[in-house]
Design a binder for these strands. Structure first.
Length: 307
DNA sequence: CCGAGGACGCTCCGAATATC
DNA sequence: GATATTCGGAGCGTCCTCGG
């Protein structure tokens, strides 16, 4: 198998960005005919016309539209690889990173993360944003540097992801709650009054689905948009909150937490970022720091009272 | 083993032609 | 008229062969 001419990537990027053979030629300091020939080679290599005539202008094919962004990122990465290495000077690094995190992440991992940043790079600031939806637009546009969350089928395919830790649901009630004494059973759990956490306002969730095969239903008294609200409400009432274990570890202090008496699927919380940042040394440093912090918290045996 | 020289392929260019 | 495409020729690098 012959290696494709990688110089064609530069040509492809120029042609797709300009949408014109003449302008792409100008950009790369070639003659229009040379660019036309290069486009012909690209067409042969990709097996797609890439740009087709529409009146006087050329318009991109669906394949060309699909490639446009990918090629741009590939080139910027390749250029970063070929650039002379510039050591990352953390002492002098002055930069604000914007992180869009899942609920409870800041409360759980923020203190350790900020402490490490303070030690290593005092000029770095973090800006944590709420995550009202799963839309990847902010990452794509560069408004957000990093995101944490569960990777789903709807997650934008161009994003890079790395698993941070596994999490699962636990139940939590106030200290001295009747459920805090005795053995927890599915029937006792289902018999209580519950807080449902739903970002979208849905009236049932995975726990209701898990109770169904046991012939049980639970009474949902109220639904709230966030885990911290649910825990806060459970702290001052007789309501039961069912929340992710890792994300609410700090929030549940002084309360009674228990393993759910019904099997519910665990989930993996991942780090997500856009390819544009893949080769950025400062961004890479922050990604490593986040991974370290999450790994450390995961291996802290004193931190998990629920088994 | 090494250098010279020819064959070949690739890419470039300018000019001519096609298309809208 | 503006732009894209095709054509023929030129320059350059690589590969192969051959002689020293």
């Amino acid at each position: 198998m012959t290696t494709p001419d990688l110089n064609l990537l530069v040509t492809l990027d120029a042609v797709l960005a300009e949408g014109s053979v003449a302008r792409a030629a100008k950009r790369l300091h070639l003659s229009p005919s040379a660019m036309s020939r290069a486009l012909a080679r690209l067409r042969e290599t990709t097996g797609d016309p890439l740009l087709v005539r529409a009146g006087r202008a050329l318009v991109p094919t669906p394949r060309a539209i699909e490639l446009r962004e990918r090629v741009g990122h590939l080139l910027s990465e390749a250029q970063a690889v070929l650039r002379p290495a510039q050591g990352l000077d953390l002492q002098r690094l002055a930069r604000t990173f914007t992180l869009r995190t899942s609920e409870g992440f800041v409360e759980c991992f923020g203190p350790a993360l900020l402490a490490r940043i303070g030690e290593q790079a005092a000029g770095v600031r973090l800006c944590f944003l709420q995550k009202p939806d799963k839309d990847s637009k902010a990452l794509r546009e560069g408004a957000v540097d990093l995101e944490t969350g569960v990777v789903e089928a709807s997650t934008a395919p161009e994003l890079y992801t790395q698993a941070l830790f596994r999490d699962h649901y636990v139940g939590v009630v106030r200290a001295g709650h009747p459920l805090a004494k005795g053995r927890m059973t599915a029937a006792r759990y289902a018999g209580g009054r519950h807080i449902l956490v739903s970002r979208t306002g849905e009236q049932r969730g995975t726990i209701d689905d898990a109770l169904l095969p046991l012939g049980l239903t639970r009474e949902v008294v109220t639904s709230v948009a966030g885990f911290s609200t649910a825990v806060g409400l459970a702290r001052v009432s007789d309501l039961i909150a069912s929340v992710p274990e890792r994300h609410t570890r700090n929030l549940r202090q002084g309360m009674h937490s228990f393993a759910l008496p019904v099997p519910t699927p665990g989930f993996t919380v991942s780090l997500l970022w856009h390819p544009r940042f893949a080769a950025d040394p400062a961004h890479r440093w922050l990604r490593n720091l986040l991974r370290e912090v999450c790994a450390d918290e995961a291996t802290d045996p004193a931190a998990d009272p629920v088994r």
